[in-house]
Design a protein around this nucleic acid. Structure first.
Lengths: 337, 337
DNA sequence: ATGAAAGCGCTAACAA
DNA sequence: TTGTTAGCGCTTTCAT
């Protein structure tokens, strides 16, 4: 069996408390005593049992992060940022994925698998407000992403409408006028407004440019294939945009592949702007102009929000916390330099 | 404070044990009693404290996975597979990343951050055998990846030499004769043999094709930029391969970008084969031929290995466990169909 | 500065 | 079938 505090105490001929004091770097221990205990610790190869410590303290030092899927580089990169942000506060991260399925998201929010945690960061895709309304779990929760909820949980995102408008404005500035939006989810009727779609519409309207429905491409998901299919469908329908603003980089990349297959040149025939600034967009035959959310800031804000509820024991407030974004201009709108 | 078993027991007017029996779905409980206890549980909103259970059972149900970085889609996709494989056995996954830094890898292997775990899956990049030799941590460990160690820990990988040979054979079959290898790490002198490089050399030699040193491109890392720099350096040196076998897909993608910039057409001027089969390779202007390791199998084997040491309490054996791979042929060697 | 002892919430051996 | 009780290993008053 593993050595415990008691074993060390016996070996050193002192009480458990003293050993505990040494382990926890308590101030008032005589150097001699400290050395003696340390020797016993080293000899026995003692390592504290964190589970016991957690039970006693009521904290585990673990926070969970649940994202739709790690195969989406945005979430993988975000997860990396969260791990780093958590580590700064000596927290470690339990990772789960929901496949973007509502049922999975609900389970996670209720603490289905990860009940050993001090807090939960959830990035929902399908979750509805109602699902969180009767939440029984008392673990602090913070929400990430474009979806908006009117709930007593902090929500962290960038200003999606402003970001979308920035992207569309950039395209207009490059002389485009038939700007498509790729990535509308029209499958579920009562789905709340898509903020990026809204931003697209607002900016076009303000510029006095038409925003017809046939320039809005619906998708079944937000991956490369979904983008490819949506782009193909639009072109097959005879619609010929001179620019595409995609829900995210993956959709944009899928769309670019189809444009390439059809002999349409990016950006000359069709300019493309994505969203997320995943590393993949910096390579490929045509690098991708994209909205770059500050992932580090999002991660830091999320962890800080959790820490806040953890320390204050205050009631959750449902604050809207906003991270910065910037437009990164690359070849898919500028062309090769 | 949270409700505990005791609270429920009092409320229901039964003993703690009975409540525990109900919670743990113990067989021999009368339906009436079960209903009564369940009612109390629901009324009080009782949720078991897993930390206490863990302390008692000596197990946490958590395994840790440490990869170099989640920004590399291969590791992100692998992490997803591990999460799924672990979930099948009711384990959750704590994720950590090492940035491929030896020091971080050592810390993780010693249980630096994640000491609340039942097992550890580590995918090392820089770690040396010596680092693991004096390992104090008694948590079961399993190693992943190309590096080979002669240590009493299970190691899971595909047959890297065979995989590399398959890739090179494919290129030879496409009529290529000046096949470069991109991704040699020559920075640390005493680095063990690079199995993929070895496979490249073996296959060329067997085919009676020269394998000169100037066709071996050294890299500083295994990301897209490293691939781009290595490719550029080789071309700048006046070396003109007609094919490139890259250490992984990211290096291949970086190389393809440079080839594109220089007006060299893939696959006509230069064919490219990668390694990992990340989703990104299926898109882009030219889809990527690649060696596809069975990530699900790797994940399953890793989890199974951990479970084995957990249950058997047997001494670690240092088995070599091999997952399958296959070559996925795409446009970067076949051209557009 | 150090020790004694209670107890965090749970499981499991033993009793009834 | 259900109850009693002894810890799992640690932290933390309260004494000394």
């Amino acid at each position: 069996m593993r050595v415990s505090l008691k074993d060390v105490a016996e070996r050193a001929g002192v009480s458990i408390k003293t050993v505990s004091n040494v382990v926890n770097k308590y101030q008032h221990v005589t150097p001699a005593m400290r050395a003696r205990v340390q020797e016993a610790i080293d000899e026995l190869g003692y390592r504290p049992n964190l589970t016991a410590r957690h039970l006693r303290k009521g904290r585990t030092g673990i926070i969970a992060l649940a994202v739709p899927e790690l195969g989406n580089p945005y979430f993988a990169e975000l997860a990396g940022a969260v791990i780093d942000a958590a580590a700064e506060h000596d927290f470690t991260v339990l990772l789960d994925h929901t496949r973007g399925e509502r049922e999975q998201e609900v389970l996670v929010s209720q603490g289905f698998r990860a009940r050993v945690i001090d807090g939960l960061i959830l990035s929902p895709l399908e979750l509805e407000s109602d699902d969180l309304l009767g939440r029984e779990d008392d673990v602090p929760l913070v929400l990430l992403g474009e979806r908006q909820y009117n709930l007593p949980y902090d929500h962290i995102a960038i200003d999606n409408v402003a970001a979308a408008r920035t992207a569309v404005r950039h395209l207009i500035g490059r002389g485009r006028s038939r700007i498509a939006y790729l990535g509308a989810r029209t499958d579920s009727a009562n789905r709340p407004a898509n903020l990026r779609l809204q931003g697209w519409r607002e900016e076009l309207t303000q510029a006095g440019i038409a925003a017809p429905d046939n320039l809005v491409g619906p998708v079944g998901g937000w991956n490369r294939w979904d983008g490819a299919k949506a782009m193909a469908r639009m072109l097959d329908a005879g619609v010929r945009p001179d620019a595409v603003f995609a829900y995210n980089d993956l959709v944009a990349i899928g769309a670019m592949r189809v444009l390439h297959e059809r002999g349409l040149r990016v950006p000359w025939d069709v300019a493309v702007v994505g969203f997320d600034d995943i590393a993949e967009g910096q390579f490929g035959a045509v690098t991708l102009t994209t909205v770059s959310p500050d992932k580090q800031a999002i991660a830091r804000l999320a962890v800080a929000s959790l820490l806040r509820s953890l320390e204050g024991e205050a009631e959750p407030e449902g604050r809207e916390l906003t991270a910065e974004f910037r437009l990164v201009e690359r070849e898919s709108t500028l062309g090769r330099r």
